[in-house]
């Protein structure tokens, strides 16, 4: 029981001259407890796809099954609110949506909305703040006086406080500095490992995709172009070229070295240490004389 898409189509601006197919015949099966990256160019349909995962958008045709709830395209689907609690969607730049006077109130907003008592919501807020690595002292501060990175963590805590099983993240590290990006990715990984959250990550950063995702879904002009193992994609030069995808920096470096030196290396190497060892081997061992 995860999230299934069965022949899902989605038309934007239906019935107008601007009508456009944003998703075309999407079949997809997402298992719980996975860490998945969704990649593709701006306009490829990534955001439309993930908004179907918690029923913010509903298909024009086809069926989306979200945990035990079935959303049928073209029909009025009732009682879908519960889905939004179990699949937490974090939009791009979520910090723009903070609005309460205090961090605590902002994080409590979601649980209160789903009928959790005030006392219970306050407990959940404290816990969520811990998960995102922020100090409890911040609870009574205005979210608007925090740094950009802290604000984003508060916004994510607001989603976590609803205790979703699945966390869908749209470009969650965009605009953060390198240290902030690294810490945020580690935070998602910890939520995945320690809290058994299913992570679905939309990102342009192939270095982090390579580091954390088990599976990649490539969207291209509203269709699924590739769905499979992360390194099967990055090692497949044909596909990378076909969809004009970016490679992780390390893979680009490997290809550069291969071309200049006329040697062959494993494109699935993903750490500097392993690359150094592969080079030592390819070049005939370490040099002890120099």
């Amino acid at each position: 029981m995860g999230i299934q898409f069965d022949k899902v189509n989605y038309l934007y601006a239906r019935g107008t001259s601007q009508e456009k197919a944003a998703l075309i015949d999407i079949d997809l099966n997402i298992d719980l407890n996975d860490f998945i990256a969704i990649i593709g160019h701006t306009g490829s349909g990534k955001s439309t796809l993930i908004q179907h995962m918690n029923a913010i958008l509903q298909p024009t045709s086809g069926v989306v099954k979200i945990l035990d709830k079935t959303i049928i395209g073209g029909r009025k689907n009732r009682d879908i609110n519960i889905v939004r609690k179990r699949v937490g969607l974090v939009f791009q730049f979520p910090e723009y949506q903070l609005f309460e006077e205090t961090v605590e109130k902002d994080i409590m907003f979601g649980p209160l909305n789903f009928g959790v008592t005030k006392e219970e919501s306050a407990i959940k807020a404290r816990e969520a703040l811990k998960w995102v690595g922020l100090d409890q002292d911040l609870l009574q501060r205005s979210p608007l006086n925090l740094s950009g990175g802290q604000m984003r963590r508060v916004a994510i805590a607001g989603i976590l406080a609803m205790e979703p099983d699945v966390l869908v993240l749209d470009e969650p590290i965009a605009g953060l500095d390198p240290q902030g990006q690294k810490e945020m990715m580690e935070m998602f990984y910890n939520l995945h490992v320690n809290q058994q959250k299913t992570i679905i990550l939309v990102t342009h950063d192939m270095n982090y995709v390579a580091q954390y995702a088990n599976r990649i879904i490539v969207l291209n002009e509203g269709r699924i172009g590739f769905d499979g193992n992360t390194w099967d994609l990055f090692a497949n030069y044909e596909l990378i070229k076909k969809y004009h995808l970016d490679l992780p920096d390390i893979t680009k470096l490997i290809i550069d070295i291969e071309n200049k030196l006329g040697i062959e290396l494993d494109h699935k190497i993903n750490t500097v240490e392993n690359l150094a060892q592969a080079l030592v081997q390819a070049l005939g061992g370490a040099n002890h004389v120099r």
Binding site: D249, L253, V272, A276, L279, H288, R290
Partner: peptide
């Protein structure tokens, strides 16, 4: 990344310098 790889390769005496530019690193390996 080029700096990190340079540091590793230096341990094996394959290169002597730390390179920032990818082109320079690859040239040195060549």
């Amino acid at each position: 990344l080029t700096v990190k790889l340079s540091q590793e390769l230096k341990k094996y005496n394959i290169i002597n310098d730390i390179y920032v530019n990818q082109e320079d690193l690859v040239k040195s390996l060549w």
